[in-house]
Design a protein around this nucleic acid. Sequence first.
DNA 1: CATGCACCTTCCCATCATGTCAAGGTCAAG
DNA 2: CTTGACCTTGACATGATGGGAAGGTGCATG
Lengths: 143, 143
Amino acid sequence: MNIGEAATASGVTAKMIRHYEAIGLIPEAGRTGSGYRTYGPKDLATLAFIRRSRDLGFSIAQIRDLLALWQDRSRASADVKRIAGEHIEELSAKMRQLQEMVMTLQHLSSHCHGDDRPDCPILERLATGASEEDCCDGPHASA
Amino acid sequence: MNIGEAATASGVTAKMIRHYEAIGLIPEAGRTGSGYRTYGPKDLATLAFIRRSRDLGFSIAQIRDLLALWQDRSRASADVKRIAGEHIEELSAKMRQLQEMVMTLQHLSSHCHGDDRPDCPILERLATGASEEDCCDGPHASA
DNA sequence: CATGCACCTTCCCATCATGTCAAGGTCAAG
DNA sequence: CTTGACCTTGACATGATGGGAAGGTGCATG
């Protein structure tokens, strides 16, 4: 099985397969006499493992650890669980950041006329750091 | 005001100020006789604008548009609102992706013993694409 | 004045995961 | 033998940022 077929079968592009080999995430593939890389079922399984891990947002470094654990028959599931837990925390932190941005933007956007006039609380906020924020909270201070 | 002071005052690193100048996001700064960049209040305002935009997750390309609108006194607020709306959609899409990853990982993690034994549904899932059993028929079918 | 330290300048390289492009070799079919 | 699809390596780009080297500048203090 050459790299193109392995790519199709595993869902990892040929480019990335070569890249993973170059950075040592996967072992060097076998070669035909003419230099083509060859892949077997075990390689395919590894590539699919990597792809599923990427789909779950794991970094290459984390996948390196997961692969090592996967291939270690005497692993402790606690190690895997810890890596997953740390990853969940990272993802959750990113989510919270995005959530905050979205809420701020929605707030600003909801107060923007969105018409032909230039007056715009979104730009106000970007320019001054505080839009007409008194509009919702406290006593009105029209700007 | 030199670049270091401008950086401190605006919250944009000197490194990034130079970068923004290089890519044409901001105009070329004035220079002293000896080549030091100089910045005035207007430049500071622009830098702070950029920083607040980055804090809200806008890309450089989007900030380029926002800056143009900001400096266009005849702008229509609808244009700003549209950019913000598109950005909200992008951020929301990312959030949904993260949410899905987190839910899958939490599901897998909750079924992992996390002890000394090697048996681990997380690795199972990464290896085979489906956790060993349809242990739970929840609203969270295989994604 | 001279020395030193903090700051400035430009330029190059690294990140992270992925893509694009180019120049050339290989294979199978017509 | 030619054609076209595939493979090889290598270089470069993305987006936003950081790090560092090598050398010039500004200012304060001895």
